[in-house]
Simulated scan of single mutants.
Amino acid sequence: MDVFVYGTLTEPDRVAEVLDSFVFVGSATLTGFRLVEGRYPTLAPGGETAGRLLRTDSVDALDAYERVDDGLYRRVAVPLDAPDGHPPEAAVYVGDPDPLDADATWPSAGSGSGFAEQVDRHLTKEGVRVRLTPEDPV
């Protein structure tokens, strides 16, 4: 699976602490989300975020690292703009700003809507995408 990473998971040493097997595919840009700092980095609606595309089969280990089962982060699928041979989507981890103490405002999806619904609504309305950044020719 290809995963768009930003923050701590862009550092090879950190990734090696979490995953036994991985490869960085290349630089990538996430459109439709901007980086916000908190206890841990997360994303908020709007803008762009630079990061890397990581390939691994160890999604369970990433989910545990991002504390998906605890609701700290949520893994979502986003269309991937990349050359042939790449999957059509990349996973992206979006953190809940409240427990992360992050300054992120999400538009409400309606009365009583939670974080998951707000993320889903943003994904469908805003054309969020990951773009593999071509390497500069030498």
Score class of each variant (00 low, 15 high):
Val92Ser: 05
Pro79Arg: 10
Pro99Trp: 02
Asp103His: 07
Ser113Met: 10
Ser108Tyr: 06
His122Ser: 05
Pro83Gln: 12
Val78Asn: 10
Val94His: 03
Leu80Gln: 11
Ala104Asn: 02
Trp106Gly: 01
Thr133Lys: 14
Ala102Ser: 03
Gly85Asp: 14
Tyr73Glu: 08
Ser108Ile: 10
Val128Arg: 03
Asp136Thr: 15
Glu126Trp: 01
Arg131Ala: 15
Glu126Ser: 15
Thr124Val: 15
Phe115Gly: 10
Pro83Phe: 10
Val128Asp: 07
Val119Trp: 00
Asp120Ile: 12
Arg129Trp: 03
Glu135Cys: 12
Val128Gln: 09
Leu80Cys: 11
Val130Leu: 08
Val130Pro: 11
Asp98Arg: 15
Gln118Ile: 04
Arg74Pro: 02
Val92Thr: 11
Thr133Pro: 13
Asp103Glu: 13
Pro87Glu: 15
Arg131Ser: 11
Pro97Glu: 00
Trp106Ser: 01
Glu89Lys: 09
Val119Ile: 12
Glu89Ser: 14
Ala90Lys: 05
Asp84Pro: 11
Asp98Cys: 07
Tyr93Val: 04
Leu100Ala: 00
Asp69Met: 08
Leu132Phe: 09
Ser113Thr: 13
Thr133Glu: 15
Ala90Val: 03
His122Trp: 12
Leu80Pro: 13
Ala91Tyr: 14
Val76Glu: 11
Leu100Ile: 02
Arg74Lys: 14
Pro107Gly: 05
Ala116Asn: 09
Val68Tyr: 01
Val78Thr: 04
Val94Met: 02
Asp70Thr: 13
Ala82Ser: 04
Arg121Met: 15
Leu72Asn: 02
Ser113Glu: 06
Ser108Trp: 03
Ala102Phe: 00
Pro134Gly: 09
Tyr73Thr: 08
Val68Met: 02
Arg67Asn: 08
Val94Leu: 01
Leu132Gly: 04
Ala82His: 07
Gly85Pro: 13
Leu80Val: 07
Pro107Glu: 13
Ala116Arg: 08
Phe115Trp: 13
Pro88Phe: 07
Gly85Cys: 13
Gly114Thr: 09
Thr133Asp: 14
Ser113Gly: 12
Val68Ile: 12
Gly127His: 08
Glu126Ala: 15
Ala82Glu: 02
Asp103Ile: 00
Val92Leu: 05
Leu100Tyr: 01
Ala109Tyr: 00
Asp81Ala: 12
Pro107Tyr: 05
Phe115Ala: 04
Leu132Ile: 08
Ser111Asp: 12
Arg75Cys: 08
Val94Ala: 03
Arg74Tyr: 04
Asp136Ser: 15
Pro137Asp: 02
Ala109Ile: 07
Ala90Ile: 03
Asp84Asn: 12
Ala77Arg: 11
Pro137Glu: 06
Gly85Asn: 14
Val76Pro: 08
Glu135Phe: 10
Glu135Tyr: 10
Leu123Asn: 03
Pro97Lys: 00
Val128Met: 01
Pro79Phe: 05
Val94Lys: 05
Thr105Pro: 04
Ala90Cys: 10
Val130Asp: 04
Leu132Gln: 06
Glu126His: 14
His86Glu: 06
Leu100Asn: 01
Pro97Phe: 00
Asp84Gly: 14
Thr124Phe: 10
Lys125Arg: 14
Leu72Asp: 00
Pro83Cys: 11
Ser113Pro: 10
Gly71Phe: 04
Phe115Leu: 10
